[in-house]
Design a protein around this nucleic acid. Structure first.
Lengths: 200, 200
DNA sequence: CAAGTTTTGGACCGTTCGATACATAACTGA
DNA sequence: TCAGTTATGTATCGAACGGTCCAAAACTTG
């Protein structure tokens, strides 16, 4: 053993996450990452192999925490399928309208969506991670929707897989709308109307 | 008068558009723009003030052509409101699944959505342009939906403005889904289910 | 306390960035 | 044909980029 780290690696990941989240991958410089984490270049490059490697770590961490929280809601078997979906939408709305508003009052979107737009076409590793996550979320959504169709809280007779893709797209659309300036009330009404398609 | 241009300015804008569209603003270098347009740096900087100015020109051109085409469909009073919306969705699906597929078969999204994600938080000029465009599209959508409610092809009794934001979000969600790898059939079913919310 | 190991700060690397300078080529109008 | 003007190609700018190197600091273990 030797000299120990004076910083918390997970804290550094969180600081880096916020930066990538707000500015995007390309627009975030290594200096930005030093500033955000409070670390020197050496510490960053000693801990992570490269800017891209750090980004992958950040993305993995984000995906894991985000999807874990959402799946927990979707798999809460005490509540009806429709209820779980409503809660999921409420989580998305809350996430987009959190206190830390950006200039202009816009939502900050979601690192998954942002990365899909910015990097997926040029970064196979990021694309793979996002694909896996999408499959995982779609699987959980399909299960909930199927259960709702059986149990009666989802009255649409559309294929559950198609409904799952629809719900997933709706969430993406809400996040884009939020970045485009939609406020909380607007997001809530989008969620309600999305539910109309499943229930109406 | 003096030596005339040997290139077509609109052609250059289109070439630059494709580049910004595929790679994003930050990841597009001025060299990329020279390669794509076939112009030398001097010609580009002589014609456009800067990379950012060129991007603004490109974005304005994109917004204009895109929204003009969509509004033409939405304002076609010979058809029912529901029909017009279905056509609008079909245009989006076609746009995302055009022959020029990217590696991995993903859609290339829409420059408007991509710019919203990448730049809107840091670029007030781009944000302004996108805001104006969104307002314009929402106004047209609301008019169509209101007409559909009067005429009967839209049976949802939700507020037309809320329905307009929902449809706009759905289109954004479809574009994100396409970049995430959704194929034509998936996009079509998302559009159908979106219509369910307006009609079902 | 000394030997060994790792972290840390800061200087520095080559490359690429967006942008400019300038000489020359190419055209117009007189 | 030539004066005037603009477009173009090339060379180049300073700054910032991602990343490396290295000496000094700071810790553990014996």
């Amino acid at each position: 053993m030797a000299r120990p780290r004076t910083f918390d690696e997970e804290g550094a990941l969180d600081a880096a996450m916020r930066t990538f989240w707000e500015k995007g991958y390309e627009a975030t410089s290594t200096q930005d990452l030093c500033d955000a984490t409070g670390l020197g270049r050496s510490s960053i490059y000693n801990t992570f192999k490269s800017k891209h490697d750090l980004f992958e770590r950040v993305l993995a961490r984000y995906i894991d925490s985000m999807t874990t929280a959402q799946l927990a809601v979707l798999e809460d078997s005490r509540r009806s399928a429709a209820d779980r979906l409503r809660t999921l939408f409420a989580m998305v709305v809350d996430g987009e309208t959190e206190t830390e508003q950006r200039p202009g009052g816009r939502g900050l979107g979601c690192l998954t969506v942002n990365t899909t737009v910015e990097l997926v076409a040029r970064d196979p590793r990021a694309a793979e991670m996002l694909d896996r996550d999408t499959r995982r979320r779609l699987t959980a959504l399909r299960a909930v929707l199927q259960e709702g169709q059986r149990e009666g809280s989802i009255t649409s007779s559309r294929d559950a897989g198609a409904l799952a893709r629809f719900v997933n797209a709706a969430i993406g659309g809400m996040r884009i709308s939020s970045q485009g300036g939609a406020d909380r009330a607007a997001l809530e009404s989008i969620a309600e109307i999305t539910m109309d398609a499943l229930i109406g």
